[in-house]
Design a protein around this nucleic acid. Sequence first.
DNA 1: AGTGCGGCCTGTCCGC
DNA 2: TGCGGACAGGCCGCAC
Length: 271
Amino acid sequence: MPELPEVETTRQGLEPLLRGARIAGLLLREPRLRWRVPDGLPRALRGRRIRALDRRGKVLLLRCDGGTLLLHLGMSGSLRVARRTEPRGPHDRLDLALAGGTLLRLRDPRRFAAVLWTTRDPLEHPLLRRLGQEPLAPGFRGRELWRRARGRRAPVKVFLMDGRAVAGIGNIYATEALFRAGIHPARPAGRVSRARYERLSRELRAVLREALAAGGTTLRDYRGGSGAPGRFRPRLRAYGRQGAPCRRCGSTLRALRLGQRQSVFCPRCQR
DNA sequence: AGTGCGGCCTGTCCGC
DNA sequence: TGCGGACAGGCCGCAC
């Protein structure tokens, strides 16, 4: 689920509550996530002070003194603040308890989330090391997308979602950005012109900003840090709309499978 | 190296 | 109503 706008919404919602807080403990109800959460993690975290909550791509970085907890929400994960007394659901996998009785609760029905502790530079962690440009950062450039696409025969949509050229893009926003830019998702990445990558980078930034302003897209599980669903779904122009009319030209939107993922596009507007 | 695929999980939906 | 299969916001690991 959560792509960049959802993870950033979560970050923005949680950061004020976490910054400066002290970790009272970690309750691991279900350590079997994407990778098994080590039994020693609660002891490693207890008593540490949280400095900041940052984000790189789809990964949250809970920066503590002496180390960083990396949180990846996978397909179905969400994080929210809860009171200690709040009843928990069957998919609430762990609670990070803060001094004062507040909990940071990870809900993850499919157990694809990752919780990893590192005492080194987190940006050098294997999860983050190879990530490309941050699409909302001021330095984000279509030129760099174009450069990284040289010689690539994979579909441009697969290239966008791969993370090594641009970070944080998943199926929803790759679909939406390609629709807005008028680029066919199956076109080989290396056969998209530099000018069209510049257009694509602008559309990508625009759709991410709009989604972020709406608190992200909720399809099923996603909730922001305060528990509210995202409001961007009705504003999706292509994702999930196969068979419906294109909002620009009226043609029927079609779907194909690229890299095992559903890809919706307008056969007339996207070339 | 780049590419394509299976697999990891659980829940839901659809067709029979 | 019940059941099997496909599919879902992500990404790793493997074979070629």
